[in-house]
Design a protein around this nucleic acid. Structure first.
Length: 196
DNA sequence: CCACGGATTGGCT
DNA sequence: GCCAATCCGTGGA
C-alpha cells in the first residue's frame, strides 16, 4: 500500500533537483507534510477541484505550486491516482549544489552569512524562492528537464520524526508532518534558526 | 529569546 | 469581504 504518508516518509533524504540553464540547484529533502483531500479539511483539495488546485487531482508525478499570503509560493509533490487529491508539501531542504545561485535568488547576493545560509531553505516559501519555483512551474512533470527527484538510500526509521503540521487552522491534530531528526534546516525552530 | 503584527495578491463565499 | 499549507522586522524582557 503506497499511500501519501508512506511516500512522504520515503521522500525524506531524497535529492530535489532544479535545473536552470547551465546551473544545477539541488538539496536533500529534510521536512515534508502530507495533504489528503479525502479526510483533511486543511488540504486545498478538500472542497473539490478548482482552477487553482487542479494539479492536485491529476495524479502523482507532478509539481503543484500555489501562491499564498499575497507574496509566497509553496511547492508540493502530487501523489496518488487521478482525483485522489493528495500532495506532499516540501517544507525544507538542505542545500547541496548551486548555493551561490540560491543566494542570488533569495538575497540578490552571492556571499551570505551562516544565518542567511540556514534561512535559504528552512521553510516552504524559502525553498521556492531559492530554487526559483513560481507559477510557471505549477503542473510540471517531476521527471522533466526542469525539475526531478533523485533517489537515495532509505533512511532508518529512527531518523524520522512525526508531528502535527504547521501554519494551518483546520485538521490541526493530524500527525502528518515528517522530518529528519536534528537536521539544522527544519522549519519553525527559532532556537536552531538563529544559531550558526 | 520570544511574541506580535504587517505585507500584499488572489481565491472563494 | 475575508483570510490564507508564510516570512520578516520590530520591540520588549
Amino acid at each position: 500500500m503506497r499511500n501519501v504518508h508512506i511516500v512522504a516518509k520515503e521522500l525524506l533524504g531524497k535529492i530535489f533537483v532544479r535545473v536552470i540553464g547551465e546551473n544545477f540547484l539541488s538539496g536533500k529533502i529534510v521536512e515534508v507534510e502530507a495533504y489528503d483531500g479525502s479526510i483533511d479539511e486543511s488540504s486545498h483539495s478538500y472542497s473539490g477541484k478548482t482552477k487553482r488546485n487542479e494539479v492536485m487531482f491529476n495524479g502523482g508525478g507532478f509539481l503543484y505550486v500555489y501562491f499564498t499570503y499575497g507574496m509566497h509560493f509553496c511547492a508540493n509533490i502530487v501523489t496518488g491516482k487521478i482525483n485522489d487529491g493528495q500532495a506532499i508539501l516540501i517544507r525544507a531542504v538542505e542545500p547541496i549544489t548551486g548555493i551561490n545561485l540560491m543566494a542570488m535568488n533569495r538575497y540578490n547576493k552571492k556571499e551570505i552569512t551562516p544565518k542567511e545560509f540556514i534561512n535559504l531553505t528552512n521553510g516552504p516559501a524559502k525553498v521556492c524562492q531559492s530554487f526559483a519555483i513560481a507559477r510557471m512551474q505549477n503542473g510540471i512533470d517531476l521527471c522533466s528537464d526542469e525539475i526531478c527527484v533523485f533517489n537515495s538510500p532509505k533512511l532508518s526509521l529512527s531518523k524520522i520524526v512525526t508531528s502535527t503540521r504547521i501554519g494551518i487552522k483546520k485538521s490541526v491534530d493530524l500527525p502528518w508532518r515528517y522530518y529528519i531528526k536534528d537536521n539544522p534546516f527544519i522549519s519553525g525552530n527559532p532556537s536552531i534558526r538563529g544559531k550558526k
